[in-house]
Amino acid sequence: MPILETRALCHVYSQGTPFEKTAVHDISLAIEEGELLGVIGHTGSGKSTFIQHLNGLLKPSAGQVLFQGQDIHADKAALRAVRFGVGLVFQYPEYQLFEETVFRDIAFGPKNMGLGEAEIRERVYEAASFVGVGGELMEASPLELSGGQKRRVAIAGVIAMRPRVLILDEPTAGLDPAGRESILANISAFQRSTGAAVLLISHSMDDIARFARRMAVFHEGRLVMDDSPARVFDRADELKQMGLTVPMATEIALALRQRGVELPESVYTVKYLKKLLLERRGEARPC
């Protein structure tokens, strides 16, 4: 049984007004326990609307969202428990920080869960260590931190609820390459050590290519591809038509192939491409 699943999910904004707009069309997607699913799509492809259904912030116009097999809207009282089970980190989450200290901000979620003092403390420190926020920052004001640190604190605020599914909307947007790298590594480590499922929205194909085992591609409110990264990136032309890019390695492989270099399909990481090219070199000049 998938841990989180949508069935024929539709969402229409401002229904019945001149601004009516269907943002999400008939999406059925299942997220399995412990997997890392990458979601890509152009701005306005409906991915942000889609993820807000997964923890019940938005109510589907049609269709269902199932968490651990249960329709999340079946019982209104249980909806809050779903929010703790399905952690959602919004885009630019640092804008939601409000507490006086980092510790208290991270503790906001666990406190809302009604946990005890000791348990909260343990979770806050655990979450902070997952995202690389050291104990020395715990008493600092979150508003005085650097942009990257704020982002980490905000992510920790969700991780502290120990969600079974962690959803991140562009967690690396606007960060420098080193910051991106380390946040993605943190998320990946969190996924491996807790066994939680992670749904990662990103614009960066390279990030998705490296971390996700499965990818979903959104286009104009529809789910158009749901496959392994290799199979998705094999359809590079379609992706480009949708205004999306392919990973740099795939791009290079395509260009090389056009120039007559024989390369297998499904090249999407720099590491793999490097290996292939070195092998070829080895064949060409045996010594």
Binding site: N55, R83, L88, Y95, Q96, F108, V158, M161
Partner: peptide, 16 residues
């Protein structure tokens, strides 16, 4: 819009 966003973000952390 901003209010909506922050509200959603806090709701996601269990605020009501």
């Amino acid at each position: 819009e901003e209010t909506d966003k922050i509200m959603s973000a806090q709701k996601a952390r269990g605020a009501s």
